Amino acid sequence: MGLKGKMIGQTVVKHSGVGDVFHDLFSKRPHDLAIASPEKVQGFTLLEGTLGAAGSKICWHYTHDGKESIAKQIIDEVDEVKQSIKFRMIEGDLMEFYKSLIITYHVDTIGEDNLVTWTLDYEKLEELGPHPGTLLSFFLHMIEDIEAHHLDGA
Rank of each mutant, 00 (worst) to 15 (best):
D113Y: 04
G17D: 13
H150G: 07
G17R: 07
Q10T: 13
L136S: 03
S137K: 14
P38L: 00
I74W: 06
H64C: 12
H150N: 12
E96Q: 14
G2W: 01
L151W: 11
K6E: 13
Q42F: 05
D108W: 11
G2F: 03
A54L: 04
D76L: 11
S84H: 07
I110D: 15
L51A: 05
L115Q: 09
L120V: 02
F22R: 02
V12P: 07
Y62D: 11
K14F: 08
K86P: 12
R88F: 04
D113R: 01
D76Q: 11
P130N: 06
S69E: 14
L51Y: 09
P30D: 13
D113K: 06
S27L: 05
T109F: 10
L136W: 10
L25Q: 03
K14L: 06
H31N: 15
L101H: 01
T11A: 11
D121Y: 05
H31P: 04
V116S: 01
D121A: 08
F26R: 00
H149M: 08
E127R: 06
H15V: 02
I35W: 04
D32G: 03
S84M: 10
E96L: 12
D93V: 10
P130V: 10
H15Y: 10
Q83P: 00
S137D: 14
I75W: 13
G9Q: 02
T63A: 08
F97D: 00
F22Q: 11
A71S: 15
D32P: 10
K28L: 06
L128S: 15
S100T: 12
A36H: 00
L136A: 08
F97P: 00
H131C: 14
I143K: 08
E80V: 14
I85P: 06
L25T: 11
L120N: 01
Y105F: 12
E39Q: 11
T134M: 15
Y62S: 09
S27D: 06
L33K: 03
